[in-house]
Amino acid sequence: MVFEKVLVPLKLNESTRRVESLATSVSGFGARSVVLVHVVGPDAGPGSHGNTDLLENRCAMFSNLGLRVEHRTVWYSDSGVVTRVAREIGADCIAASWKPKNWIQRSFSGSMIMDTIRTTDVPVFVHKQPLLPSWSDPKGPILYATAFDVVDRFALPLLNRNDFGPGHVILLHSADRAPDPQTERARREQAEGTLGRLAARCLNRSVTTMSLTGQPERVIPRQARLAGARMVVIGKSATVQDGPRPIGRTAEAVVHARGVSVFVLPADAPVLHASGSWDPEEYSS
């Protein structure tokens, strides 16, 4: 299995259909066990964490798909609660269902998933319901948006694994146009060459490469929808700085894009072992 323990933060007011869909996706990318973490909001009344029937029902949805399930209830204390719990239980992935918010809602109430992506050092899967069926086919390809940075070292072995989800892989690189024709031609040639080399490393998959010109935050969701991609795999920013790495403009925009499920990989990613699991304590620098 690719992931030993996947943490799934859950609110009990999420619709059954949404949770079912999330469970199907989590079982599809190679998880062995799932820890459902019921985050009780700060404004929740007494007894809101006691709806054990509903929680059991949610657990059953995951266990019916062959996943080992346990659950916990935690109080929302701050935006880093999910990250902290993930670290405590030794989760190697976090999977959450995305509730769309417009920019006004985001400005006022923020987003727990974005805070989690920002603070965690494990991969985060953000599941979204497509607005149109053609936007995301459960058997569709996986689109890996590469920025030709350190994330590739971690992403390619992951994509190469059949238990990460069967099917076709699209390697997409998109970048802004260079200011002059000569540099632009060189940039395109270099991008196509690098994509070819990356594709050659995905031996277990059929791979298509795409090198496109344009703002990545717009190009990636558009291409994902056009291809009916199952999910977009994208890395957080690889910029070196003090403190936690930022999400990056592109990854943040793709996470916010409607109807496109996203698998966000940290740039300081744990090394994926050929044995089928990784040690979360071991990091590639």
Binding site: R177, A178, P179, D180, P181, Q182, T183, E184
Partner: peptide
């Protein structure tokens, strides 16, 4: 800086 011909069309390339 970019060695393009000195024409307005060059500035529109981006």
């Amino acid at each position: 800086r970019r060695d393009t011909p000195i024409r307005l069309s060059s500035t529109l390339f981006p």
